[in-house]
Design a protein around this nucleic acid. Structure first.
Lengths: 190, 190
DNA sequence: CTGTTATTTCAGTAATTACTGAAATGACAG
DNA sequence: CTGTCATTTCAGTAATTACTGAAATAACAG
């Protein structure tokens, strides 16, 4: 590996982090390299930069494409494939969330649903179903929220993030006012 | 493995899912088993239920304890260790988020910060730093939001989730009113 | 077609990670 | 102390996953 030291640290870190996710070292490194590269790279440049085999690069790029984390580009008069990552980090975040949901959450939801359909045959099963139902409920809440929020454009999402928990305080204040109004009216009525 | 069929499906699914996270199959299965079990289990019961070695159970429970996903309980007049998962699924979610942040996000943030401190020695490095800075900014935003939201009690968090993107619509409405007010005032003034 | 260059596939191997059984440690009762 | 039961450690092995080089496929130019 022969990269500017600053880039190398980044690439190596992503490689290690990769293993903590499901992703493997090489895939992480390639992603990091493409992410910081000023222009698209072709497979041989990646081989050169990371010192790994051509076939490994090919397979890892496939993996990254399956994750939609990498874009294929073609330069005029050059039939090699060049690769980049999307520029917009928010877009990257969205993609990552979407893919992880698809791979990690959706299958679980469908297994839970299936099990919850079945008739429990014992107390143990009944209890298990209750627990699974709690889990199912939580996951559904989270995914509904996610489906809702993912539609937002970047600046609105940013606003939402900046607000964070403040929103609930606002709402509680509003609720108090509303309930005051209600109790006043109900008093008038009663 | 000799479990009620319904429990078995759940346990097996979690085992497979485990591999898609960093967690391994056995750890996933043990967690799932404890999660649906009506009362705490000791190591030998887990060995029995899952058909794996005693030592594997011991190591996997350690891993789960390191993740704070499992609680150690003692029954009176019994010196064996018994294990459960926390009852409250929201609490489990919090723990999971906290641990994943600690392991997957914090190290990246600190590497990024370190690299961004350094003086770039070339155009390539300058460009790389810019990209890293974008990533750093995004992650900081997300973690700030998370730090903020994680303090909320369950019912407030639930409210926040239920609202989802509606909040931004409310805010935009508010902003329009405020900016109307402002432009009115500035007209009066000018 | 033929030759050239780019990419992919895949069987074999290397590296890593998971799991086991045996032995060590610990915790306690008598 | 000694014996008993529970848990942990760890070296060896099994299983899985990652990686390579060689061969196959593909995409084109002439």
């Amino acid at each position: 590996m022969n990269l500017p030291p600053l880039v190398q640290s980044f690439v190596l870190h992503f490689g290690e982090m990769g293993s903590r996710w499901g992703i493997n070292r090489t895939v992480g490194q390639i992603y990091a390299l493409l992410y910081v590269s000023p222009e698209p790279l072709n497979a041989d440049q990646i081989v050169e930069a990371l010192g790994i085999s051509r076939s490994n690069v090919s397979m890892s790029l496939r993996e990254l494409q399956a994750w939609n984390l990498v874009l294929l580009k073609h330069l005029p008069d050059d039939r090699r494939d060049f690769f980049t990552t999307p520029d917009d980090v928010w877009q990257i975040l969205r993609t990552l969330a979407e893919e992880r949901k698809k791979r990690e959450v959706d299958p679980t939801l469908s297994v839970l649903r299936e099990i919850l359909m079945q008739q429990p045959a014992s107390d143990a099963e009944r209890h298990a179903q209750e627990r699974m139902s709690e889990m199912h409920g939580l996951i559904e809440r989270l995914t509904t929220w996610y489906e809702d929020v993912k539609q937002l454009e970047t600046d609105r999402l940013a606003t939402l993030l900046t607000l964070g928990a403040k929103v609930t305080k606002l709402l509680e204040a509003k609720d108090k006012i509303v309930s005051l109004g209600r109790s006043k009216r109900s008093t008038e009525k009663g």
